[in-house]
Each structure stands twice: as structure tokens, then as C-alpha cells.
């Protein structure tokens, strides 16, 4: 883990999101908000379609960070802004592409800037993580 360098970029990884994953995440996280499962409800509150939980997008970015860090146990801090919804139409698979760059090294930790892209738009803003290198 000690070979992290400032400016180093990590290869992007694509995560696939479909309606089934939204239901699985709702059950695992306890967030059963119908805007993430019920198309009619989502449209009734002004959304274009069912949208993914922002926290699912963040959790998938967290999986990417955990893999870089050598395990979830090394992740000390993680933050993101939900800038755009990830729209998940029925019977389709949406691609979420996560990548990262080392912004700083200090106190035995690496700071990462993360990018999350879906349908050519950034869906997370100011996405950052701090991982322990020890």
C-alpha cells in the first residue's frame, strides 16, 4: 500500500445498476422510499422515472474505495454531494463509472478524489475519501 503517489490515477470500474439492484439495496439498507422502486410514484413527485438511492451510488463508490484500500477497514472518511439523480428505467441496465486520483498523502493516509459518471454526467460532486495506508 505504500506505493501510492500524489497525482496517481486508478483505473475506472463500471458498476451496473438495474431495478433489481435498487430493490436489493432498499432491503439491505432499510431505505424503502418509493421513488427508488415505484415508477408511478416517482413520476407523481416530478421525477423523470425511478431513481437510484444516492446512498447506493455512494455505497458503490465506497466499494471501489475499499478495493483500492485493501479492505473496508482502511476507509477512515468518505463524503459526497448528490449532484444529479441516477435514472433507472424499467428493463434496462445503467452504467455507473467510478474512478479515483490521489490528491494528498499525510499522516499515513491517502486522500482520494473520486469521480462518478452516469450517462455522461457527474452524479457525485466533491466526492472524497481518506484511506489508511498502514
Amino acid at each position: 500500500m505504500s506505493n501510492f503517489e500524489v497525482g496517481q490515477e486508478f483505473a475506472p470500474k463500471t458498476f451496473l445498476i438495474d431495478r433489481q439492484l435498487l430493490v436489493a439495496y432498499a432491503n439491505a439498507s432499510g431505505d424503502q422510499n418509493p421513488i427508488h422502486q415505484d415508477e408511478a410514484f416517482a413520476k407523481s413527485v416530478g421525477l423523470p422515472d425511478v431513481i437510484a438511492h444516492g446512498m447506493l451510488t455512494m455505497a458503490l463508490a465506497g466499494k471501489y474505495v475499499s478495493d483500492l484500500a485493501g479492505g473496508s477497514g482502511a476507509v477512515k472518511e468518505f463524503s459526497a454531494r448528490f449532484t444529479k439523480p441516477v435514472v433507472v428505467p424499467a428493463n434496462s441496465v445503467v452504467e455507473l463509472v467510478i474512478s479515483a486520483k490521489v490528491s494528498a498523502l499525510e499522516n499515513g493516509c491517502a486522500k482520494l478524489d473520486l469521480t462518478a459518471i452516469c450517462a455522461d454526467s457527474k452524479v457525485l460532486g466533491m466526492a472524497k475519501a481518506v484511506i489508511s495506508l498502514s
Binding site: 439491505a28 431505505d31 479492505g71 473496508s72 476507509v75 468518505f78 475519501a129
Partner: peptide
């Protein structure tokens, strides 16, 4: 079980500690 279920949804294969965002499953409700 809660850790494993949460981690599995994200495609993780290691369940010894919780994923970094797991605490939301407790704090949200």
C-alpha cells in the same frame, strides 16, 4: 447477516467488517 447482506448488494466478497457506508442503514431510520 446485516453486514453480509449490505456488502453482497455492492458485489463485495469479504464480510469481516462493514462497508464504509453501512452505518446509514442504522442512522437513517
Amino acid at each position: 447477516e446485516a453486514i453480509t447482506n449490505f456488502a453482497r448488494v455492492l458485489g463485495a466478497e469479504n464480510f469481516d467488517v462493514a462497508p464504509p457506508t453501512f452505518s446509514i442503514s442504522i442512522t437513517l431510520a
